[in-house]
Simulated assay, not measured.
Amino acid sequence: MRRLGRRSLAGIAALLGGVLVLAEPAAAQSVNRDLFEGLNRQLLYVALPLTVFVEVILVYAVVKFRNNDDPLPTSKDPALEITWTAATAIILLFVFVAAFTVLASPYMSATGAAAATTQADAAPDDAVEVRVLAYQYGWEFRYPSANLTTQGELVVPTDREVYLNMTSADVLHSLYIPEWGIKQDLFPETHTYVRTNVYEAGQVRLYCTELCGAGHSRMTGNATAVSPAVYETWLATHAGEQNVRTVPTPTNTTG
């Protein structure tokens, strides 16, 4: 049994090391995705060795006792039961703390309209607000600082706080930007509020992920992140215009 235990531990270490190398993620494009991927990695590091350990014990029991025609019930072992219960409690506590720390972040938890107004007032002076209106079957993005709007084209500066104040004109919609780690429902007559900070310039796709009618599949658009200087120039160039179709070109394009 001891030899099996040593081999099991060695196998777990080797497998875990291989997974850590293979699962090393690419650089996150936003603080939201960075938080989400960090939580996934923490849970993976806990779940993987436990899974391997349980499977090793299961295989060992099947092989060792496969020809036992007269099995006996497991004898009571209070020490083992206490250890197993305590270990389970510690693992669950770790999962709770890790998940709560991430999900309670203002970048991960959406807020309602009242809280959004309060947080917007307390936002840094250089924060960017974009008002998002979803409708069947498209997206309107309004930039209050320049009084301009775009259709299906979200533009934000990199390395700055961005606040998306979102609502729906008709039915339930959901804004999803995979590369930025943003996914939030939009409701009629209600405002939801998302906070982000994009690290990397580029253009990615955005989608509606809530079935909203016959044209749901074509309710897509682009999300473009550019340097703050390029963003300010774009705002100044199109100030006061509606349904602007020209968006700045990012340094690199993904998605």
Rank of each mutant, 00 (worst) to 15 (best):
M1I: 06
L4N: 08
G5N: 09
R7N: 10
S8I: 12
S8C: 12
L9D: 05
A10H: 04
G11P: 05
G11D: 04
I12N: 02
A13L: 12
A14C: 07
L15V: 14
L15T: 12
L16W: 06
L16V: 11
G17W: 02
V21R: 07
E24K: 14
P25T: 12
A26Q: 10
A26H: 07
A26I: 01
A27Q: 13
Q29V: 00
Q29D: 02
V31D: 01
R33H: 09
R33W: 05
R33I: 09
F36C: 03
N40S: 12
L44P: 05
L44K: 04
Y45V: 15
V52H: 05
E55F: 09
V56H: 10
V56C: 12
L58V: 06
V59H: 09
K64S: 15
K64Q: 15
K64G: 06
R66H: 11
N67W: 13
D69H: 10
D70T: 12
P71G: 08
L72Y: 01
P73D: 12
S75I: 04
K76N: 12
I82L: 10
T83D: 02
T85C: 07
A86T: 06
A87M: 07
T88F: 08
L92P: 00
L93H: 00
L93M: 09
F94P: 00
A98N: 07
A99H: 03
T101S: 10
V102H: 04
A104R: 05
S105E: 03
P106N: 08
P106H: 12
P106S: 09
Y107C: 08
Y107F: 15
M108T: 10
S109C: 02
A113G: 14
A115W: 06
T118A: 14
Q119D: 11
A120E: 13
P124S: 14
R131F: 00
V132A: 01
L133P: 00
A134H: 10
Y135S: 12
Y135E: 11
W139S: 00
E140T: 01
Y143F: 13
P144I: 04
N147R: 11
Q151Y: 08
E153A: 08
L154N: 01
L154W: 02
P157D: 01
D159E: 14
E161A: 05
E161Y: 05
V162R: 01
L164D: 01
L164G: 02
S168Y: 02
S168I: 06
A169W: 04
H173I: 07
G181D: 06
K183C: 06
K183D: 14
Q184A: 14
D185E: 15
E189R: 13
Y193D: 03
V194C: 03
N197S: 11
N197C: 06
A201E: 14
Q203M: 13
L206M: 15
L206G: 02
C208N: 15
L211R: 04
C212N: 13
H216R: 04
S217L: 09
M219C: 13
M219H: 11
T220A: 11
T220R: 14
G221F: 03
G221P: 02
A223V: 07
A223T: 02
A225I: 07
A225P: 03
V230C: 00
V230W: 00
Y231E: 02
T233R: 13
W234F: 06
L235G: 05
T237F: 10
A239F: 10
E241Y: 03
E241Q: 15
N243L: 09
V247N: 02
N252W: 04
N252H: 11
T254G: 00
